[in-house]
């Protein structure tokens, strides 16, 4: 079984062995809702090469992304906290791919027993809080072009692919902006040969150029994740 998820990769062998009977590799289709607001969290997902979003939907139907979950996170971390249900967030698959599914109960039991597992999952929670905090500030302070560049880099880093199957309408929901804004920001990035957009696919052509266009938030978060979870091998 693949340990392409960064959290599973840093688990000590004895902890991983205890969880192994409960780990199941699953394929997640785009658009699948893994968790509805208010429901208990029955399973957690460690993405391998899929991209998940934690979203919030307002009463008028408008949606925005509150957090992004990929191969350096786990989806459903609330399951190990006091209350197993979330009140306002939904978990949805944004880019199809594989994940390791684990039922909440055995993971919670092992969480209570193993300090090493607690350390990893609490560090991951701290990293997720860092992501949400940085994104909140970024959305308030930085221009759309910078935010789009950051968002694409974050997505790319979480699925380890330059090829992102994402529509501009979807990205506009995730960034909480109008579709026209994403269309023009993407056009500007494309004119500079940083990305190529074609029929629901974004291809990152120049990662360094995109990093230079992005605000500081991408590098700040990358450093924080590396500090909390160990440096990611980016040479492969």
């Amino acid at each position: 079984m693949s340990t392409g998820n960064r959290l599973l990769a840093v688990l000590p062998g004895e902890v991983y062995d205890k969880l192994t009977p409960y780990l199941e590799e699953v394929w997640l289709e785009r658009g699948t809702i893994l968790h509805h607001p208010g429901e208990p969290i029955e399973n957690l997902y460690f993405p391998l090469d899929c991209l998940l979003s934690i979203t919030i939907t307002m009463k008028d139907g408008s949606t925005a992304e509150a957090g992004m979950v990929g191969n350096r996170e786990v989806c459903g971390i609330n399951a190990i906290m006091g209350a197993r249900e979330t009140t306002q967030t939904e978990y949805i698959v944004q880019i199809a791919g594989s994940a390791i599914k684990v039922p909440a109960r055995p993971l919670l039991e092992e969480f209570d027993r193993s300090k090493k597992l607690r350390d990893v999952l609490l560090s991951s929670t701290q990293a997720l809080i860092a992501q949400i905090s940085q994104t909140t500030a970024c959305n308030s302070l930085h221009v759309l072009e910078q935010r789009l560049a950051r968002w694409l880099l974050e997505a790319q880093d979480r699925i380890d692919s330059d090829d992102l199957k994402l529509t501009q309408e979807f990205i506009s929901h995730m960034l909480g902006v109008r579709r026209a804004g994403v269309t023009q920001a993407a056009q500007k990035l494309q004119d500079r040969d940083l990305i190529e957009y074609n029929r629901g696919r974004v291809k990152v052509l120049d990662q360094q150029g995109l990093e230079a266009t992005s605000c500081e938030c991408f590098m700040t978060l990358r450093e924080e994740y590396d500090r909390l979870l160990g440096t990611k091998d980016r040479d492969g």
Binding site: V143, L144, E145, V177, R178, A180, G181, Q184, A185, Q187, K188, D191
Partner: peptide
Amino acid sequence: LDDDTRPLLKHNLRS
């Protein structure tokens, strides 16, 4: 009318 879009669209048209 959208403040996010206006500067980007202006820039793209001018370019």
